[in-house]
């Protein structure tokens, strides 16, 4: 058998899961969709003493429309997000980005919470969370913390979660009326992790950009939000020059590294190219465009 031995628990309530997590020590791991953790077990890169399978905790799954925000439970499958009409309408950026996550059979099992907690630098869900300033709702036996994306994603595969804490939901702000969103990505093959992916959302009112959100995956140790690029667009008419200035800012603020898939210089170019694609797409979808 490939994975190492572990104690396996399948709690049915959140309290039971949090107790197990608190009492099992730092070697315990949460098992959500397993699409990142099980490969690591099969390679024996991960050797947890205890696995806490949260798939049976019903209260962790589901999509709830809470007025201004959409609250998505941690174990909500990526496939459920991709087929949700509510997500398509209220957080279209997440909806579009989800199609770029791996392949359909992997999204059948993979969860939003697993992707966000795993914090792979090339993963799409964390980039969307960064762009929209989502709130990560984290719970332990000690209580609840609500952490904004800017303080949640720290480094490669590193988040602000404490060992006894579980991500229980992610709260996304609903898209404002008249705003447009688009996600653009390039990878070696369909379904592979991104070489560069850019999430953009623009709100235009009276012909001027009232709000701009731009973040990327694959071009830094964690999802990056590009404030300089957003500033280049704000109050502009969102014409080609403003978009070019924003793309230049994205390239300048990217922090890519060389690896077997692409050089850092190439990834930086791709970041600008994907920003151009995403911004043009978002602008085309925004109402009130000049």
């Amino acid at each position: 058998m490939k994975p190492p031995r572990f104690d396996y628990h399948a709690p049915e309530s959140l309290d039971e899961a949090l107790d197990l997590l608190a009492d099992s020590g730092p070697d315990a791991r949460i098992l959500a969709g397993g699409q990142s953790l099980v490969p690591a077990l099969n390679f024996r890169l991960a050797r947890p003493s205890v696995l806490i399978d949260i798939n049976g905790v019903a209260e962790l799954a589901g999509i709830e429309d809470a007025g201004e925000r959409l609250v998505i439970g941690a174990t909500t499958r990526q496939r459920a997000i991709e087929t949700s009409e509510t997500v398509a309408r209220r957080v279209p950026l997440l909806h579009e980005a989800t199609r770029y996550v791996a392949h359909l059979p992997i999204r059948t099992r993979g969860t939003l919470g697993g992707s966000v907690a795993n914090a792979d630098p090339a993963a799409e869900d964390p980039a969307v969370a960064a762009a929209l300033e989502a709130t990560m709702v984290c719970r332990s036996r000690r209580g609840e913390r609500r952490i904004a994306a800017a303080g949640f994603f720290i480094d490669v595969l590193t988040t602000a979660l404490e060992p006894d804490e579980m991500l229980i939901a992610v709260e996304f702000p609903g898209i404002p009326d008249g705003a447009g969103a688009a996600f653009a990505e390039i990878s070696r093959r369909d379904g592979d992790f991104a070489l560069a992916g850019v999430a953009a959302q623009i709100a235009i009112s009276n012909g001027r950009v009232a709000d701009a959100r731009i973040a990327a995956c694959g071009v830094g140790p964690a999802p990056l939000r590009f404030r300089d690029a957003e500033d280049a667009l704000l109050d502009s008419a969102c014409g080609p020059e403003a978009i070019e200035a924003a793309c230049d800012a994205v390239a300048a603020s990217s922090d890519p590294h060389d690896d077997v898939h692409a050089s850092a210089a190439y990834r930086r170019q791709l970041a600008a190219a994907m920003a151009r694609r995403a911004l043009n797409g978002a602008r085309a979808r925004a109402g009130g465009a000049a």
Partner: peptide
């Protein structure tokens, strides 16, 4: 491959395709 890449192990679980090498039998 037994790590999710090749897809040869794909089966349907409750009506949807999934990698059987990335699920535990107990699940």
């Amino acid at each position: 491959c037994e790590h999710g890449i090749c897809g040869a192990c794909t089966v349907h679980v409750d009506g949807e395709a999934a990698r059987s090498c990335l699920m535990l039998a107990v699940q």
